[in-house]
Nucleic acid binder design. Structure first.
Lengths: 195, 195
DNA sequence: GTCTATAAAACGATAGAC
DNA sequence: GTCTATCGTTTTATAGAC
């Protein structure tokens, strides 16, 4: 259809191959073969393998913002706890639909250890979740749905739980994620001050 | 000293280089140069690069058992909560001492996605923590230190929190880990049943 | 935009001497 | 146990025609 349909196909194919075999073990030859073009044609669209990896990362980053999963205005005194539970579970569900996501992110985390460009964006994304949860918890306190204590620590715990659940799910660990997230929300969000 | 001092040096050097540059970007030439031997000398001690990575993994796995951090018998009715907190914080402290640890484990996790030998051992290690926490919580309930509810879910949450804290610390995120772990222990362990 | 052909470098691993 | 020298393969990337 579009004049850059090849461009998109390359990105989609790269996403899959990178997740399956890893960045290093996925060669430009493999991608070209899978897309059914020659290697120089591939280099026409992307100046290097690294640039495919970079563009892919930016695309992924766009889709993982806190606001994509939580809309603070929709939280009321009546639905606060149950909505926080169900919205969190939606994230888990989304990861179950895309088995490649966490495998790819694991590799971007590794890149981040050596390249600040990647770590910066990953940290920003996590910060976005923490900041979002803080705002959500403060909203909850304002409307009288929850206690007004330790918002930052609670938000950091929720961020870590979300991240960790993604990780464990992608590894095929049969944990009780629904019960875990529910308990996290119920006890953490309700719970009082740390001594 | 020992006849296999070179063998040990290779492992230590490999650990550092693999953490710094990654498995793929660390070549046998680099390791040989850093150890100050030739490449064939390196191949005398290890039949392949993969075998260095494997031996390294087994060494690491030995040091991350639940029992290395938590001794159930030492938990009494008086010290239960505070000991669980301090023992957990000891794990965090240990990771701060070895900045390479999480970087290496991140890569073994990636290997595990494609090789069951690695994922099997990683999952066993996590299972060891969950099983250990269950036993610890049941012990706590038996001696009347905590409520006797949802031991498995609580144990899974604690395992995930430990794993996640390691991860976030290694990424340089300045979270309130002490407060987070304390709150996790206090609210999760004390807290009642999930509705 | 896509192709065939190829360059240039790096890699894992080995032969064979000492 | 360690060396020099080298093999065979694969990699990223490009020159140049269409």
């Amino acid at each position: 259809m579009s004049i850059s349909s090849t461009y998109t196909t390359i990105l989609e194919t790269g996403y899959r191959l990178f997740a399956e075999h890893g960045f290093e073990k996925t060669s430009m030859t493999m991608i070209a073969k899978e897309v059914n073009i020659s290697k120089p044609a591939l280099y026409y669209h992307f100046v290097s393998k690294e640039s495919i990896i970079e563009v892919l990362f930016d695309e992924i980053c766009k889709s993982i913002g806190f606001e994509n999963f939580f809309t603070i205005q929709d939280y009321t005194n009546d639905n606060f706890e149950e909505k926080l539970i169900s919205d969190g579970l939606r994230i888990i569900l989304k990861q179950n639909e895309d088995i490649y996501y966490t495998r790819i992110m694991n590799q971007y985390q590794a890149l981040g250890y050596r390249n600040p460009t990647y770590s910066r964006k990953l940290i920003d994304s996590l910060d976005g979740f923490t900041t979002g949860f803080v705002a959500l918890l403060q909203h909850g306190a304002r409307i009288g749905a929850i206690e007004d204590t330790d918002a930052l620590v609670k938000a950091q715990m929720l961020t870590m739980m979300i991240d960790s659940m993604d990780n464990f799910i992608s590894y095929g660990l049969a944990y009780h994620y629904e019960a875990i997230w529910t308990k996290a929300v119920v006890t953490i969000v309700r719970g009082g001050t740390v001594r």
